[in-house]
């Protein structure tokens, strides 16, 4: 059976199920709201630990990646074929990227950057697989209005099994939802990226060399020493204050990096989900344009996260310029 016929059969099966449901479920079914919530939906509750759909998706992404890696490296040959070839090309491309951004230290940064890139790209794309969106749990929030942070749209529902309270909103929580739309995922990546950057910086420059970037009191000390000996130089005071101020800005920018990493990934992918949901009310194949855009954005965001991590690590491990000049 050709793939085109397969698609046709699957589509017919869906339509058949919908028709059968209309026939065999006689009661009036309520409209189900497709939703994009800021907060990920809980699927199961394991002794107080709620397993969310984003967590599930990140596990699937991990499984996909590990499966791919194991398949690629199970029996490695000097002349690669098949999966090994593709995976090696991918890894080599990331390695080249790491070496072009990080120079000779690129190899050290490579594993974490590659993991970030692969995980973000795979999990972003997993959330975009057509058909995963509408397959999910229908949660009934009996007697409650839609919780905050939810955009809802009424969609024609296909599967409906649960009893419901009339008038209560029924929300479709998909099993698979892109982890980047859950703020915890980008935040964890950002934390790892920034913390590792600090660790690499300390490793490369030594503790005082690295911390000296943020707390730079050398010229201030020169001024104070001069003042004690009765020869206060105003220029030293000015530059000392400037150094301290610049150090503070650097410190703040490290925290800003976490925020910008987090909200860049979260904002891009979450906005993409909202856009896709809204655009799905356009007619015919017009939403496909936005779908393609989101695929592109999902891949680019992974690339960007990786490149920025590499760039920050590279900057953090390079000695400070003012130390070289004096």
């Amino acid at each position: 059976m050709s793939s085109r016929n397969k698609v046709l059969v699957i589509a017919l099966a869906f339509i058949g199920v919908a028709v059968a449901q209309k026939i065999f479920i006689p009661f009036e079914t309520p409209a189900v709201s497709a939703s994009v919530a800021v907060k990920p939906e809980t699927l199961f509750d394991l002794n107080g630990f709620e397993i969310t759909n984003t967590l599930l998706t990140s596990w699937i992404a991990m499984l996909v990646l590990i499966g791919l890696a194991v398949t690629a490296t199970r029996n490695m040959k000097l002349v690669p074929t098949g999966v090994q070839n593709i995976f090696e090309m991918l890894i080599e491309a990331i390695l080249n990227l790491a070496e072009s951004v990080g120079g000779e230290r690129g190899r050290k940064f490579f594993p974490v950057a590659a993991t970030i890139l692969l995980l973000v790209v795979v999990s972003n794309l997993l959330g975009l697989i057509p058909g995963f969106g509408p397959i999910g749990l229908i949660s009934l929030e009996k007697g409650h209005a839609a919780p905050a942070g939810i955009v809802t749209f009424d969609i024609p529902q296909i599967f409906f099994v649960e009893e419901h309270e009339p008038g209560a909103p029924i929300l479709l929580a998909p099993f698979v939802r892109s982890p980047s739309t859950d703020i915890n995922f980008p935040l964890s990546l950002a934390l790892i990226s920034v913390v590792l950057t600090q660790i690499f910086g300390v490793q490369a420059l030594g503790f005082f060399g690295y911390v000296g970037k943020f707390i730079n009191v050398r010229r201030m000390g020169k001024f104070l020493g001069g003042a004690l000996r009765g020869k206060a130089v105003v220029g030293d005071l000015m530059y000392g204050l400037l150094d301290i101020f610049v150090g503070l800005i650097e410190l703040v920018s490290e925290i800003g990096k976490i925020l910008s990493f987090t909200f860049r990934l979260f904002g891009n992918i979450f906005a993409g989900e909202v856009v896709l949901l809204i655009m799905s009310f356009l007619f015919l194949a017009l939403p496909l344009i936005f779908y393609g855009l989101e695929v592109f954005v999902g891949a680019i965001q992974g690339f960007v996260f990786c490149v920025l991590t590499l760039a920050f690590m590279s900057i953090a491990t390079t000695p400070h310029h003012s130390e070289e000049q004096h």
């Binding site: 907060k39 991990m62 942070g149």
Partner: peptide, 17 residues
């Protein structure tokens, strides 16, 4: 409300590691 949750954050960190 934004969805930040220490347990989920830790879970994602563990995932990544």
């Amino acid at each position: 409300k934004l969805g930040l949750n220490p347990a989920w954050l830790l879970a994602q960190l563990a995932n990544f590691l």
